[in-house]
Amino acid sequence: MPQLKIFVGTMYGGALDVAEQVAPLFEAAGYEVSILEQPSLDDLTETPPDLALFCLSTTGSGDFPGNFVPFARELDEKSPTLTALRYGLIALGDSSYGETFCGAGRRLDEMLQGLGATRLGARLEVDAMETFMADDAALPWVETWIEEQQLTVA
């Protein structure tokens, strides 16, 4: 059974909630799902998943949440080759912050692509000013993403 790892970067639990809500959709599509609340680079490189999903909140002025900082720092410092990585990205933010809206998700996306990873489809950016519960936007996006990217294996 192919493996999906969901890498979570969250400050107040919103991104974790999204990860927990979308996991059953991937299980139904035939994946063994792991949700990583304290992700490390080894989770990505030592035992690479068949597919990765990043659920990432933005804090402050476009910053990574505290639990995700070590992962991002290690990714930046070690610069591993990620040409085999296929991933999706759900970025959570607040458009009232202007230019830094979804800054952590956008920055991670650039980092991953710079290391050779392939994002499948478009990045989902969820605006807290428009969507109170992020999973209201994430669930239909994941359903469509699985279908459009032909990710069903079951």
Rank of each mutant, 00 (worst) to 15 (best):
E125A: 12
P140M: 08
G60F: 07
T152V: 11
M133Y: 15
P24W: 10
E32T: 15
V22S: 05
L82R: 08
A91Y: 07
P24C: 09
R86T: 14
F132S: 13
Y97V: 12
V153I: 15
Q21Y: 01
A15W: 02
C102S: 08
T100C: 15
M129K: 14
L53K: 04
M111V: 11
V142E: 01
G88Y: 03
G66T: 07
T83P: 00
T144W: 05
T152Q: 11
A15S: 15
V69H: 00
Y97M: 12
T58F: 08
G116N: 11
L92E: 05
V18Y: 03
L16A: 14
F54D: 05
V126Y: 04
L44P: 04
T59L: 02
A128L: 09
T45M: 08
E99H: 07
T100D: 15
V142C: 12
E130H: 05
L115K: 14
A23T: 05
M111W: 12
T131C: 14
T144E: 15
V126E: 07
L25I: 05
E37S: 12
L115V: 08
E20W: 00
V69E: 15
P70A: 07
F68D: 02
E147K: 14
T100F: 14
A91I: 06
V33Y: 06
F54A: 07
S79D: 12
S95E: 09
L120S: 08
